[in-house]
Amino acid sequence: MKQKFSVLLMVITAVLVLAACGTKDGGNASNDPGTDGDNKVYMVGTEATFAPFESIDADGNIVGIDVDILQAIADEVGIQVEWRNVGWDAVFSMINNKETDIGASGITITEDRQKTFDFTEPYYESKLLIALPSDSTISSLDELKDKKIAVQINATGHVAAKKLQGEMSKNILAFESQPLAIQEMLNGNADAVIGDNAVVYEYMKANPDKKLKIVEDDAFEREYYGLMVRKGNKELLDKLNEGLQKIKENGKLEEITGSAFWKE
C-alpha cells in the first residue's frame, strides 16, 4: 500500500510540473498589447484631428498619411500596430508612462524633444505658415508681435509664437488641436493662427466656406516629422528605421506622401 501511494504521488507531481512548464512557456505567446514575443502589438498614440496625417473617418477608424506610413513600415518588418486617439499632450506623456510604444501625429523632430524621446529618420518635410481671416491686412510674422495668436498647444507653432512674443505672453491662445485654433480665430477670438502648412491647407480644402488667407514667411524654417519612441528603446527604433528605409527605397513612402525630400 505504501509503495502504491508513492507511485501515485510521483505521477501527480510529474503532472503538476508539466502543467507549470506549459504555463510558463505559453506566457510568451500572449496577444495582449505590450507583451513580448512574436505576437506583440505595438500601441500607437495619436491626436486624430491633424488631417491629412490622422483623422477619424465615418466608421470611426483612424486614417491618414501617418497611418498609411506606419502600416507600410509594419508590413516590411513584420510587426503589428494598434492605434489609439489619445490627444496631443497625451501622445508624449503616455510613451513616458509606458502606456504606448510609438507616437505618430505629425510630430516635428526638435532638439528639445530629442532630450526626452528618440525619433526615427525624417519621413516628411513641413513648414509653418500664418493663417488669417480673408479680410486681414497682416502680411508678415513681424506684424503679429502685439496680436492675438491661436496655436496648437506645445506644437512648433506654439514655440514660434512664444519666440515672437515671449514665453509668458497673454496674447498667445493655446488649444488642443490646430483645427480648433483656426475655428477660434474665425470666431473672432484671435487675429491669426500659426500652424503646419499641410494641416492648414487640408482644413481649407475640407472647409471651403471658411474664408482664410495664407501668409508664408521666410522666418519659418523647414521642419521634419519623425515617429517617436521612448528614450533608449533602440530595438523598436531600429525596426521602425529599417522599415522606413525600405519604403523610401521601394517608392512606397513617396507614393503615400507625394514627397521625396530625402532625395534632394
Rank of each mutant, 00 (worst) to 15 (best):
L8T: 06
L9F: 10
V15F: 10
A19N: 03
C21E: 03
G22V: 14
T23W: 14
K24D: 13
D25K: 15
G26C: 11
G27H: 13
S30N: 09
D32S: 13
D32L: 15
D32R: 15
D36W: 13
N39L: 15
K40T: 15
K40R: 15
K40F: 10
V41H: 02
V41K: 05
V44R: 01
V44D: 07
T46V: 11
E47T: 07
T49E: 08
F50E: 00
P52D: 08
F53D: 00
E54H: 05
I56M: 06
I56P: 00
I56D: 00
D57P: 00
D57N: 08
I62E: 01
V63Y: 00
I65E: 00
D68C: 11
D68F: 07
D68Y: 02
D68L: 12
I73C: 07
A74L: 12
A74F: 08
E76T: 04
E76G: 04
I79A: 07
Q80K: 15
V86H: 03
D89S: 14
A90R: 14
V91A: 08
S93K: 06
N96Y: 10
N97K: 15
N97C: 09
K98W: 06
K98D: 11
K98P: 02
E99K: 13
T100W: 03
D101C: 12
D101E: 05
D101W: 03
G103A: 12
A104Y: 03
S105H: 00
S105F: 00
S105D: 01
I107P: 03
I107V: 12
I109N: 04
T110N: 10
R113N: 10
R113E: 06
Q114I: 06
Q114W: 07
Q114S: 14
F119Y: 02
P122N: 14
Y123R: 04
Y124R: 06
E125S: 10
A131H: 02
S134T: 06
D142L: 10
L144K: 05
D146G: 10
K147L: 14
I149W: 04
I149R: 08
A155H: 03
T156V: 15
G157Y: 01
G157I: 06
V159C: 04
V159E: 06
A160F: 06
Q165E: 11
G166D: 04
M168D: 11
N171E: 08
L173E: 01
S177R: 01
A181T: 02
Q183T: 07
Q183W: 05
Q183R: 09
L186T: 00
A190W: 03
D191H: 08
D191K: 11
A192I: 03
A192Y: 05
V193A: 09
I194M: 10
I194H: 04
M204C: 06
K205R: 14
A206F: 00
N207T: 05
K210R: 09
K210F: 12
K210E: 13
K213R: 12
I214A: 12
D218W: 02
D218R: 06
E221V: 13
E221R: 09
R222I: 09
E223V: 07
Y224I: 07
Y225W: 11
M228A: 05
V229W: 02
V229H: 03
K231M: 09
K231A: 12
K234W: 04
E235R: 13
L237Y: 00
K239R: 12
L240V: 07
E242H: 13
Q245A: 15
K246S: 13
E249S: 15
N250H: 02
K252L: 09
E254V: 05
E254C: 09
E255H: 06
I256N: 00
T257D: 01
G258D: 08
S259E: 02
A260E: 10
